[in-house]
């Protein structure tokens, strides 16, 4: 039971994180765009999603989607909410990485005729990733923990399952401790993956 819930937790937050990467990069380019409209819109999106509690976002998405005719499963609503949230935070992480790349490298690309999107793909993004892996791991851990909130919309992830078990066994202490240990184990695993990725990517430099 608990393991099934843990699997759900990893699925929901993992999907959100992975979907959030390309979207977060887009938003990062939007925020840093030289087009004033694009950057203004991107910044507004970012402050809205960074400035409101994730629980509120979750409930709004959950109750809003049916109103506009989209009857989606709670799990999908949860993934959408967490994705839209992590996009705003990942964009900020990516922006930090982008600013750490010397502008001269972009100028060198321009001087051999490389256009904006090709430059982003070949020169900018690979370097952003090697710079931000630690922050990305932190963001993943934070999403993983925040995903416990999706239990309120009846997604049977780790938190919800724990609550259900507690309701029948009346042993809150043992159950919640076990849940906590599972969260810690998953996060530990994540840090390990992050550190390995960092070492692998650092190969060249």
């Amino acid at each position: 039971m608990l393991m099934w819930g843990a699997g759900m937790t990893v699925l929901v937050s993992g999907t959100a994180i992975i979907l959030g990467m390309p979207l977060g990069l887009m938003l990062c380019f939007g925020v840093t765009s030289s087009n004033p409209w694009v950057s203004r819109f991107s910044r507004i999106y970012q402050s809205v999603w960074r400035g409101t509690p994730i629980l509120v976002q979750l409930l709004i998405i959950y109750y809003l989607l049916p109103l506009i005719g989209l009857n989606v499963a709670p799990i999908l609503a949860a993934i959408i909410a967490l994705t839209l949230n992590t996009v705003a935070f990942q964009a900020e992480i990516f922006r930090g990485g982008l600013l750490a790349i010397p502008p001269g490298q972009m100028e060198a690309a321009r001087m051999v005729g490389i256009r904006k999107w090709a430059m982003r793909y070949h020169v900018v993004v690979p370097q952003i990733f090697r710079l931000v892996i630690p922050s990305l791991v932190n963001e993943t851990i934070s999403i993983l923990k925040n995903s416990s909130l999706v239990s309120v919309i009846a997604v049977t992830e780790l938190m919800r399952v724990s609550q259900q078990i507690v309701a029948t066994t009346y042993r809150p202490f043992e159950i919640y401790i076990t849940a906590a240990v599972i969260y810690i184990l998953v996060n530990f695993l994540l840090s390990l993956i992050g550190r390995t990725a960092e070492k692998r990517l650092a190969g060249g430099t």
């Binding site: 010397p102 001269g104 490298q105 100028e107 060198a108 001087m111 370097q127």
Partner: peptide, 15 residues
């Protein structure tokens, strides 16, 4: 037009 820079500006993640 080609350019060579004071600080090289090579891309460090590429060979």
């Amino acid at each position: 037009v080609g350019m060579v820079f004071q600080h090289f500006n090579l891309w460090p993640h590429m060979t």
